[in-house]
Design a protein around this nucleic acid. Structure first.
Length: 857
RNA sequence: GCCCGAGUGGCGGAAUGGUAGACGCAGGGGAUUCAAAAUCCCCCGCCGCAAGGCGUGCCGGUUCGAGUCCGGCCUCGGGUACCA
């Protein structure tokens, strides 16, 4: 007897779908559209299991929605710019472009073997000049609308390699290659004015009802709206053209507890003071060696230094406060200067204790007030407290009330202003790297910064570049750099910064609606296909990518490239969990970790016998090399098995740790389905079933028919609710029931045809094969989704558990519509209940019809 | 540090506040086979001979009833603005 042969089956059906262009999307205003999008991959060169999981999920949705009658758009492309290509260029002397396109070719072949319902005719890579040229056009439009500007900002500077480092490339304050202590260096960089949209991006979150709450919360916290007071401390003696220090505080009500004024090491006054104070300069230089990441800054030991300057308290000019520089004050938030109130802020208190600065409480708890020792008194602003020392006359009031009173008083008296502040900063898009989208401007000595002319786009990256020394190859590429000024024609120089790769991924979804258009979008196409109806991707993108895309959609709408209705581009969002795996590492001569692929590790050793350290499971990532190659799985078991396995077991939103164990089991199950079909096929008449039928039509066996209807219902619910693992469980149960059924062959075949249709979104090749074997005609990929006969979904009896004091003691099977009183009677007559009552009367009897009976004794 | 999640048998997990452990894996037993592979059937949270008791990371609370709701922790994961 022949066997389930996925290699043959899968190639055959993939070819059918291709030939008939089943997945090619075409705008059709007469039909409702559905745009399914999974976050596009970075072309690392190999598919990993996270991809399989992500794209299998999207494919379930795409195929299911198509079966439900929607005109589905399901495109794929490549997030192709980025650091790894430059690293490869340095390590292996390959051009980043060649490396990237080779990776794309390789990964595309792997993708195709999965049989995803993708419209490949819309494919593009963000490193295609056709794509990034349109991105440059967008940049110019944004520039014209005032959405882009330049300002100084700090970067991580590696003083040995003389290059800018990504945060990822800074380890414990040192450059990853040179090992040198990094410095913060200021450069003039390009910025998008995303912070102008803070309020809008915040309030529009309310409308994103089909986004996970956790993502909306994370975005809201990231934007970080806060109400506070902005005011100044006058310097006792002006210094370096500063006569006051502006601060922002969300707790102005604690102003009487002020202990000192703190400046960021990057504050303009700090920088001025450094010039004639070598000790201070040394301290600040030290502070700046942590790199630029917020994480590193916040985790660093809290340190400070007295500047010697003194300021006057705004409420009492005779009260003088010292001015300290503290490494935990961020220049990017507020004004880069704070006043510290150690009594009501733990970080300030730790600092005050360390440097012996005064601690003055301004309020105390209503009950059991304690003096401040080593724990600051921090209470919710909504909690009422007793004010010890307030200046608005309040005695007992909440923090919120005290803040409002303080702001009102400050504004009346004219020494401060209530302001709404956001944590969200403008988006710095400049990167000092080669492998990114060139920023299309030219620097001219006489005209200044001049936008490139649109007809000169794309500004293409030069091909001939070398990576034999660190730094940006564009900087030293004179032939590329030296161009005439687009305005005056005089010799000028191109901008050598390229764009952050987040720019590339902030509008690709819009480009997919018309990937060949000579403008960023074709409005007719964009108007038809936008918005993305279902977006699927990793939760690690919950903040940056999604926030940037939301900003871009607004900016594009302002420039006319998208309809205003696409300001929120993703109607529904699903964040899948990650596929994790153990990490294998050894150490290099400097003790830094060197990672190894799981496929290179056998029994905890490399091929040469070196033992590897095993680090607990983490997100599969290129940099940690803890990735599993799905190609081996596909070769051994077929794509359907890989897909089925990734959809079963774990709930989609949760992380899943890759194990080999389940793949075999998944394959056995698919082989069983195939075998059942092949055994039944010869005994069937050649009657075809080709269209939507009131399912489970053709199943006359009552039990099987009921189960078929129930399965249709449950699987549909599972798909609709992104609970693919429970859909899979129901399909397992249905398969087992068909196998055990004694119903006639025609019944079992009809049940199997329903099974095939329900499995089609998950294991599309096997489903087509089984459908055809059992007399179905036409492509399953074009058939409507089965519908359950509602009459078969109703049960007329129900089994109620009987609890005594909340513990299950017995059960009762009754007619579904049995009146409460009768259930009570039956329950009290139950042997277990009688025993528990021991002749007495129940204290309480709870009957929830259709649910449960609870007897309290 | 800060923000957001997650924690249930040996393992992955199921469960509108209502029978905890569906479904699958691993394991045990059996059938078939000369034998094996493949396949099929049965058992399978922990303790206990049993009756029964205990069980959803920990501590407390609300409720007739809590894996689910509330408060406080612990551990792990994601993000932390130049990894994508």
């Amino acid at each position: 007897m022949s066997r389930y042969d996925p290699a043959a089956i899968e190639a055959k059906w993939q070819q059918h779908w291709d030939t008939e262009e089943v997945f090619k999307a075409k705008a059709d205003p007469a039909r409702p559209k559905y745009y399914v999008l999974e976050m596009f991959p970075y072309p690392s060169g190999n598919l990993h299991m996270g991809h399989v999981r992500n794209y299998a999920m999207g494919d379930v949705v795409a195929r299911y929605k198509a079966a439900c009658g929607f005109n589905v758009l399901h495109p794929m492309g490549w997030d192709a710019f980025g650091l790894p290509a430059e690293n490869a260029a340095m390590e292996r002397k390959i051009h980043p472009g060649s490396w990237t396109y080779a990776n794309i070719a390789n990964m595309k072949a792997q993708f195709r073997s999965l049989g995803l319902s993708l419209d490949w005719s819309r494919e593009f890579a963000t490193c295609d000049p056709e794509y990034y040229g349109q991105q440059q056009a967008l940049f110019l439009d944004f520039l014209e609308k005032g959405l882009v500007y330049r300002k100084a900002a700090v970067v991580n500077w590696d003083p040995v390699d003389m290059t800018v480092l990504a945060n990822e490339q800074v380890e414990d304050g040192r450059g990853w290659r040179s090992g040198a202590l990094v410095e913060r260096r200021e450069l003039t960089q390009w910025f998008f004015r995303i912070s102008d949209f803070s309020q809008e991006l915040l309030s529009a979150l309310d409308g994103l009802e089909n986004w996970p709450d956790k993502v909306r919360t994370m975005q809201a916290n990231w934007i970080g709206q806060s109400r506070g007071l902005r005011f100044g401390f006058a310097l006792e003696t002006p210094a370096h053209d500063h006569d006051r220090i502006e601060v922002f505080t969300t707790r102005p009500d604690t102003l009487m507890g002020a202990s000192f004024v703190g400046l960021s090491p990057d504050h303009p006054l700090t920088k001025a003071l450094e010039k004639d104070n070598p000790d201070l300069a040394a301290f600040c230089a030290d502070c700046r060696r942590t790199g630029t990441s917020e994480e590193a800054l916040e985790k660093a030991e809290k340190r400070g230094m007295d500047t010697g300057l003194r300021v006057r308290h705004p409420l009492n000019p005779d009260w003088h406060l010292p001015v300290w520089i503290a490494n935990f004050i961020l220049m990017d938030y507020g004004t880069g200067a704070i006043f510290a109130c150690p009594a009501h802020d733990q970080r300030d208190l730790d600092f005050a204790r360390k440097y012996d600065l005064p601690v003055t409480a301004t309020f105390e708890a209503l009950t059991d007030p304690q003096p401040i020792a080593d724990t600051a008194l921090v209470l919710p602003k909504s909690e009422k407290v007793r004010w010890i020392n307030h200046f608005t006359g309040l005695t007992e009031a909440t923090g919120d009330e005290a803040i409002a009173a303080t702001i009102a008083k400050a504004e009346t008296e004219g020494w401060g202003t209530g302001v709404t502040q956001y944590r969200l900063r403008d988006w710095g898009l400049s990167r000092q790297r080669y492998w990114g989208c060139p920023i299309p401007v030219v620097h001219c000595d006489s005209c200044g910064v001049v936008p490139e002319k649109k007809e000169n786009l794309p500004v293409k990256l030069p091909e001939e570049v070398s990576f034999d020394r660190p730094g940006n190859p564009l900087d030293r590429h004179d032939a590329w750099r030296n161009v005439p000024c687009p305005a005056c024609g005089a010799p000028a120089k191109r901008e050598t910064d390229t764009m952050d790769t987040f720019v590339d991924s902030s509008w690709y979804f819009a480009r997919f609606t018309s990937p060949g258009a000579a403008t960023p979008t074709d409005r007719a196409e964009a108007d038809y296909w936008m918005n993305v109806d279902q977006y699927i991707g990793g939760v690690e993108h919950a903040i940056l990518h999604l926030l940037y895309s939301r900003f871009f959609a607004r900016a594009m709408a302002i420039c006319g490239h998208l309809p205003g209705t696409a300001a929120e581009p993703f109607d529904a969002l699903f964040t899948q969990g990650m596929v994790t795996h153990e990490i294998y590492q050894t150490r290099d001569a400097q003790g830094r970790p060197v990672y190894h692929l799981p496929s290179d590790v056998t029994d905890g050793r490399l091929a040469d016998g070196t033992a590897v350290e095993t680090v607990p499971s983490a997100k599969m990532s290129k940099s940690k090399k803890n990735v599993v190659d799905p190609v081996g799985i596909v070769n051994r078991f077929g794509a359907d098995t890989a897909r089925w396995f990734m959809l079963s077991d774990s709930p989609p939103e949760r992380d899943v740790e890759w194990t080999d164990a389940g793949a075999e089991a998944a394959h056995k199950h698919l082989a069983r389905v195939w075998r059942m079909a092949s055994e039944l096929a010869p005994s069937l008449p050649q009657a075809g079933e080709s269209s939507a039928e009131a399912a489970p039509k053709g199943v006359s066996d009552a039990a099987l028919a009921r189960l078929a209807a129930r399965t249709i219902h449950d699987v549909t619910q599972g798909i609709e609710g992104f609970a693919f693992n429970t859909s899979v469980a129901k399909l397992y149960a249905f398969t087992a029931a068909i196998q055990k059924s004694a119903a006639p062959a025609s019944d079992r075949a009809a049940a199997l045809r329903i099974l095939a249709r329900l499995m089609a979104p998950m294991t599309p090749h096997l489903a087509e094969e089984v459908w055809t074997m059992l007399g179905g005609t036409g492509l399953l990929a074009r058939l409507p989704w089965p519908e359950a006969d509602p009459a078969l979904l109703v049960d007329d009896t129900v089994t109620l558990p009987i609890q005594v004091n909340g513990k299950r003691r017995s059960e009762l099977t009754v007619a579904k519509d049995m009146p409460k009183a009768e259930i009570e009677k039956l329950a009290l007559a139950d042997v277990a209940v009688q025993k528990a009552l021991a002749g007495g009367a129940p204290k309480k009897l709870i009957v929830v019809p259709g649910r449960i009976v609870n007897v309290v004794v």
